[in-house]
Design a protein around this nucleic acid. Structure first.
Ligand code: MN
Ligand code: MN
Ligand code: ZN
Ligand code: ZN
Lengths: 140, 140
DNA sequence: CTTATAATTGCAATCAATTGCGATAAGCCA
DNA sequence: TGGCTTATCGCAATTGATTGCAATTATAAG
């Protein structure tokens, strides 16, 4: 089963439909290594399909999040970043408020907290591709 | 020294000015126990001073954050919440993605992570009145 | 293949928040 | 007190993102 079938199946299972817009949008996200913004996705697709509206991009991003195919994070700078997740190592980011540098962080760093909150409060936290703000070593 | 003198001094030390708008805005925030939105602050002040613009509210909130008098947090629902900090116990919030319930959380829960990130990465995180999203015990 | 149904789209309007700019006024000094 | 400097304000425009709605179209049924 290739990537298109994979998307098609994932969508059909939950009553969604496979549309050209969704294929094109996912395709752009998948071909990017690292983060991408809604505006960048839109302008990439518009090159070949000029009628795509930015609202369709946002609605599709919402859908792809629900299907756990992408993550969404605000890394500062006022624009939200999206990233393709399938087959990649889950991670968070440290973001320096002064110089803007971002450092990748393995998910294990926050796992003790996740367990503690589940034990103490019965609360199942939802830590996925977090942005943790502060001062980097260089800026301290 | 009363609260007004306190604000005046804090402002003057850093070259800022004490204006009626800033006094009125801080006053509204101070009299609220718990969270308040920019729109609520604006509409409260406008009752007595109709010319206040919402942009002045946002600019003042930015300033009060820099002076560490208030905290800012997105608790979900698309509107940012502000809270007066002085003399209150610092805390975070657990926010349930399903039912919307928010639970207060002592800051000590995240301190091990803060220390770890400082040790391992030399990164000084900036954890202040965080919103931690997930599922509450009742919704699991 | 044709038709029916309902999910999805494009578009325009809207929302929360931010920014540029000329007018105003707070703080400082004579 | 009165004038100077420049921080701050109100206003309008803009930004990133969301929403309501009528038109379109992906899918299922005949
Ligand atoms: Mn990432
Ligand atoms: Mn709080
Ligand atoms: Zn830095
Ligand atoms: Zn809940």
């Amino acid at each position: 089963m290739d990537q298109l079938d994979e998307l098609y199946t994932a969508l059909r299972e939950t009553g969604y439909r496979l549309t050209p817009q969704r294929m094109m949008i996912l395709d752009v996200i998948r071909h990017r290594t690292g983060h991408i913004t809604a505006e960048q996705i839109h302008s990439a697709v518009v090159d070949t399909y000029p009628y795509l509206d930015i609202s369709t991009v946002y609605r599709t991003l919402e859908l792809l999040k629900d299907l756990h195919l992408i993550s969404e994070t605000k890394l500062g700078g006022g624009v939200t970043q999206y990233e393709y997740k399938v087959g990649k190592k889950p991670h968070h980011h440290l973001v320096c408020r002064k110089c803007g540098e971002t450092i990748s962080l393995g998910v294990q760093v926050l796992q003790p907290v996740e367990h503690l909150l589940l034990e103490e409060y019965g609360f199942q936290v939802d830590f996925d591709h977090l942005a943790i703000f502060g001062r980097c070593a260089h800026c301290l």
